[in-house]
Design a protein around this nucleic acid. Structure first.
Length: 161
DNA sequence: GCCAACGTTGGC
DNA sequence: GCCAACGTTGGC
């Protein structure tokens, strides 16, 4: 059951984008810096090895789903919460002596030949129920149903990375 | 445990 | 850069 779940993770390409993931050793990176409880709980409780994730670029001129990554390591503590030099430092984690936050490792899997823009997703009646297109939906990690996943994937060819 | 103030997100 | 939505914090 859990293995049929899909996800979407937002990122600001100015900070860390799909290109950065591709440039990493093994095209793998730990997804640090998530500081929202609902998003954390998704990662901690429901992210499983081998699941697929849409990588979405936000805060850019044309917000869009850029590519696909794969979960290669399940949730473990995010050490940046304990690092005072990190911009993800968390005072409360320091007080309790352990990170309140967690992260997973993702590996790039494919890019979409045509980025699937938010505009396009919003205009598509088949995706009217998708969390991403809901007004005011700001959660940085969202579940994607198998139907939504398959439909979005049908909108553009994938280029293996 | 309520809720006002404040901070952040993210599309536009 | 604006601002609406929503999450978090902290005083009471």
């Amino acid at each position: 059951m859990a293995s049929e779940l899909y996800w979407l993770m937002k990122t600001e390409p100015d900070v860390f984008g799909f290109e950065d993931l591709l440039s990493r050793k093994g095209q793998t990176e730990s997804w640090e810096g998530v500081r929202n409880y609902r998003a954390r709980n998704f990662m901690r409780d429901q992210f499983k090895l081998g699941q697929f994730v849409f990588i979405y670029h936000s805060r850019v001129e044309e917000p869009a789903i850029i590519g696909i990554a794969k979960i290669v390591k399940e949730a473990y503590p995010d050490p940046t919460a304990l690092d005072p030099k990190s911009k993800y430092f968390d005072e409360k984690s320091k007080k309790i002596g352990e990170s309140r936050w967690c992260m997973v490792d993702v590996k790039a899997f494919a890019r979409f030949a045509e980025p699937i823009t938010l505009k396009r997703l919003k205009a598509d009646p088949n995706l009217a129920g998708m969390a991403l297109v809901m007004p005011g939906q700001r959660l940085s990690i969202q579940p994607v149903s198998p139907g939504e996943w398959a439909y979005v994937c049908s909108l553009s060819p994938q280029i293996p990375v």
